[in-house]
Write a protein that binds this DNA or RNA. Sequence first.
DNA 1: TGTGTTTCTTGTCATAAGGCAAGAGGATTG
DNA 2: CAATCCTCTTGCCTTATGACAAGAAACACA
Lengths: 191, 191
Amino acid sequence: MTALQKVYQHPLLKPQDLEIIFEAHHKFNFQKGDFLLKKGQVANAYYCVSNGLIRSFVYDYDGHDITTGFIGINEIAIDVASLFRRIPTIEYFQAVTDGECYSIDLETFQGLYHSMKGLNEWGREWMSESLFQLKQRSISMISDSASERYKSLQRQHPHILQQAPLKFIASYLGITDTSLSRIRKELVKDT
Amino acid sequence: MTALQKVYQHPLLKPQDLEIIFEAHHKFNFQKGDFLLKKGQVANAYYCVSNGLIRSFVYDYDGHDITTGFIGINEIAIDVASLFRRIPTIEYFQAVTDGECYSIDLETFQGLYHSMKGLNEWGREWMSESLFQLKQRSISMISDSASERYKSLQRQHPHILQQAPLKFIASYLGITDTSLSRIRKELVKDT
DNA sequence: TGTGTTTCTTGTCATAAGGCAAGAGGATTG
DNA sequence: CAATCCTCTTGCCTTATGACAAGAAACACA
């Protein structure tokens, strides 16, 4: 099953709908370090990742690069607020590894979104799901220890650990790479 | 301007649309301590608050009550994931003060949502905005100090400080009420 | 009015995580 | 191949926050 098939899996999206949707996407390759979006820009498209790993990040008040999210295979790299509300983004989206993705620009998407009932439903469900994931993460940031958060990541997204350097993972978990290194040491000890 | 007028303000929602929407809501009063939704339930409605303050909260791994959000006047108390994906919620929604709100049940909303283009747009924008707010908060939880987060809250949502006890505010900021008390002491000193 | 109950502050002590610096391997590149 | 980055680990010390407990003040209410 291709990445686009995975991404757009939905009961109301029939094969003929999917065909139209897939054709609206434009495939391209990205290289480690490439930026899909930079702070201050207004997003004009979103990206379905079929290979590789993307991260979103911000700079905090004293210039530290803080990873805010990872987008892996069969996931969508998108800044919802910037794309749909036409405002400058506050994050950067950058490739962690080489990879491949399918992009669709806003105008094209809007056309399909308004004419295709299934896509409309898919969109709402995708947003619900995103809100849910983000909420889960917020709660976890508050109620779990750094070590717990690391173990969850290890359990739920092992591919991230394999593809991203520890400094990205550390800032994603809300700690420094130094602390993460110590946490990993502790966990190995317990084995 | 009434709470519902504020909540449903949108260029594509015309007076005649709004009239229909308003009529679909059911007004009722709540009392401090009342629950709008409890963990494990599947949400059947959402609530536009016209008076008072609601909070959402969870219990963390060792039983601490952690406030995850505040919903004040002209805001919507909703668990998007539970309502639209029909899954049990993981949060509680409880009244912090006495108040008043307008509820609309899922079925009624769905009918309007699918028949009224403006409401559809409004819904998508509302979700974008929510995602944005939540993302901002996540970033802030990582990149700002507890003291900074308190000052932001004070600046941006002073009404919350006036209506909610410190223990709720503290857990919302990710710290204990003890720590918040000390932070407040420091801030007063700097004045 | 009196008696709980909640809210907020404060003290003491413990601990997780950060700041900084050094060093060891690996990878990259000219 | 040498030079130079990254990446990851580790040691030492500091600091923010938490756990727990006690007390003051405000509030609820019978």
